[in-house]
Design a protein around this nucleic acid. Sequence first.
DNA 1: GTCTATAATGAGATAGAC
DNA 2: GTCTATCTCATTATAGAC
Lengths: 222, 222
Amino acid sequence: MARRRPGIADETASTRGKILDAAERVFSIRGFDAATTREIAREADVPLGLMSYHFGTKDDLYTEVIGRRAEQHVADILAAMAAVRQRAGDGEVDVRALVEAFFRPIVEKSMSGGPGWRAYIRLLSRTANESPTHPHVAAFRKIYNPVPLEFIRLLKERFPKARPENIYWAHYVMSSAIIHMLVESKTLEQLSDGLCSAADLDTVAEKMAILFEAGITRLAEL
Amino acid sequence: MARRRPGIADETASTRGKILDAAERVFSIRGFDAATTREIAREADVPLGLMSYHFGTKDDLYTEVIGRRAEQHVADILAAMAAVRQRAGDGEVDVRALVEAFFRPIVEKSMSGGPGWRAYIRLLSRTANESPTHPHVAAFRKIYNPVPLEFIRLLKERFPKARPENIYWAHYVMSSAIIHMLVESKTLEQLSDGLCSAADLDTVAEKMAILFEAGITRLAEL
DNA sequence: GTCTATAATGAGATAGAC
DNA sequence: GTCTATCTCATTATAGAC
């Protein structure tokens, strides 16, 4: 059985941990602006006063919610990409595997990491859609920055003749799609009349990898 | 509570029009929750009291902001798709042209339709990212519903042997990417060190059409 | 560390004069 | 139709007892 990160494990039962868990849920459902510290306190079954005592402002709380899981998430994505690179040896990196490396850690955490991770993923997606001028958004971008950098580096290595701008565009289109798909709106379910579900992240990952392997390759080999 | 619904041209100079224009700007920058009716009134240079008089609740105002442009937008997209269909005659619809038909009306309005349209497009993207449980989101989805339906219908016609679910997935991935790209965060600019700009919607449309032509075709011909 | 009570602010919406 | 003044409520954050 995998050991949980000590920071999180120690906190799950504590007041701080209860608040962070509740904040994660409420922020992920309501978004930063519509969420209220009162609702979070109620959800955590903790008096309102403890919110400020433990975390200061609402902005600080949000930053800590992101910070609690972000580093592990980034590390896992980078590890998955490194594995893809290593499997390729002296040959070319497999583009489809690279796309999956970007997305799989998210899928696994969302599906098997427990409800906390699932809420976190929704929260992440929401945050990526917010204005970078928000202080909490800036903090989040800084932590995740190595991921696109490495993805782009590997793509450039895989397509040495590609025009750099097309590499950036390919990554931009792909990451945009991923970000929005993680909000889990019910659009897909309604359009397909229940045939497909956006909550089925395993299938999302598969279809996405197929589509973007072809699309990225086309753009890079232009 | 007198509620008239004149055309946009008639309203630009009126109080109603000034409020709608200001609401469009503020909502598109702040999002629904963070926007305040006070800021909108200030921006419109109109006393606060007129907000409720003309539009009732904040939710109603938002709905009217969307409603003012949505129908024309939808009509333009459907017309572009119909043109693509007609150009194909008895032959197969061009997938790349179809993708462009989905996106081009947005680009043109955002770049040449004036600042109002540009704000509206950002607002649209924000709205698509919000929870469908919000009342104003539901109204917006209802108006836009014919667009995905027609896109999917044409894709099914173009790939009669494709498994329907792959058609839905293809559309889902594409529309997700489009939605997020329209928020115009500065991510792409920063990553590419100024080489690419997400605000350059003309190029966005071109790159996107290339990528998704290949990606959608791959998924559909699986 | 925990909790209650409350301060201070800002929100959406309205009343009523003009 | 317009505008000022205000109502009512919910919010973040804090003060201070335990």
